Simulated assay, not measured.
Amino acid sequence: MSPDTLVSWLDLLGTFVFGLSGAMLAVRRDLDVFGIAVLSVAAALSGGLIRDMALGATPPAALATSSYLLAALAAGGAAMIAHPRIERFTKPVMVLDALGLGLFAVTGARKALDYGLEPLPAVVLGVLSAVGGGAVRDILVAEIPRVLREEVYALAALLGAAIVVIADLAGLAPTPAAMAGAFAAAAIRILSVRLNWKAPKAPRRRD
């Protein structure tokens, strides 16, 4: 599979998963059908839009075709219809968010490399792509974005993006590297919540 095809498929999957996380949060907040659609689209498309605007990729992939918008709206519809079943999973919004985080981290880093960015900026763009959708989703429902909380969130995205970049430097195949990066980021995020891992903080000053 070519890098462009890989980015497109993972991007579309990440769009649906993040859209589902936004829609499930909207259902929990008892929003109406319009609110569910708005939160689903915002969560699904914001990260990719941030990435493509940073790269100067015009028009952004999310607007160049109807596929991404349809995937986001399909996620909203799925949440409306099947939310009781989805809620049976432990912390479904968190799990979906973790999967979207991993997928967008690797697609952001991969696309940055394809556009000729150096390794470190590619990792940074992967992180921005990963946290953008979740941040917009949380802000719309008046929550502090997860990336700013005391949780391993951006660090998980950083790991996923770094795996893609390191694999590229080593000349490894992009598809297995992307899969490994997405899995690692999602796994670290989920484990951090389950095991109550916290990101390091500056020590408090003692008077």
Rank of each mutant, 00 (worst) to 15 (best):
A54G: 01
M1D: 14
I163A: 08
A184I: 08
V17D: 11
L39A: 07
T65V: 10
G116W: 14
D207Y: 08
A167Y: 12
R194S: 02
A180C: 03
A187P: 06
K198C: 02
S46F: 07
T58R: 06
A177I: 11
Y153S: 05
M179K: 07
L70F: 15
V123N: 08
A105P: 14
A72S: 03
A178V: 10
D30G: 12
V38A: 13
F89Q: 04
A78V: 15
A178R: 03
A170R: 08
A199Y: 04
A74V: 14
A122S: 13
A178Q: 10
P200A: 07
L172C: 02
R146K: 07
G14N: 14
P119H: 13
I190C: 04
L20I: 12
T58H: 06
L39H: 07
G76H: 08
N196G: 11
L70E: 14
A130D: 06
M53P: 01
V127S: 10
A180I: 07
F34G: 13
V152E: 00
A199E: 07
A161M: 12
V164G: 07
N196P: 00
L120R: 08
W9L: 11
Y153L: 02
G132M: 15
L6S: 10
V141T: 03
L73E: 05
F183W: 14
G181S: 10
R194F: 00
G35P: 03
L25M: 15
R51I: 05
L99G: 02
P60K: 04
V147S: 13
A64K: 04
A170Q: 15
R51A: 07
A64I: 01
G76I: 05
V152S: 01
A61P: 01
L6N: 13
L25H: 12
L172H: 06
A79I: 08
A57L: 14
L73Y: 09
F18A: 11
V152K: 00
V136T: 11
A26K: 03
V38L: 12
F104I: 11
A156Y: 05
E151N: 01
V41P: 01
R85F: 15
G160F: 06
G133N: 06
L169C: 10
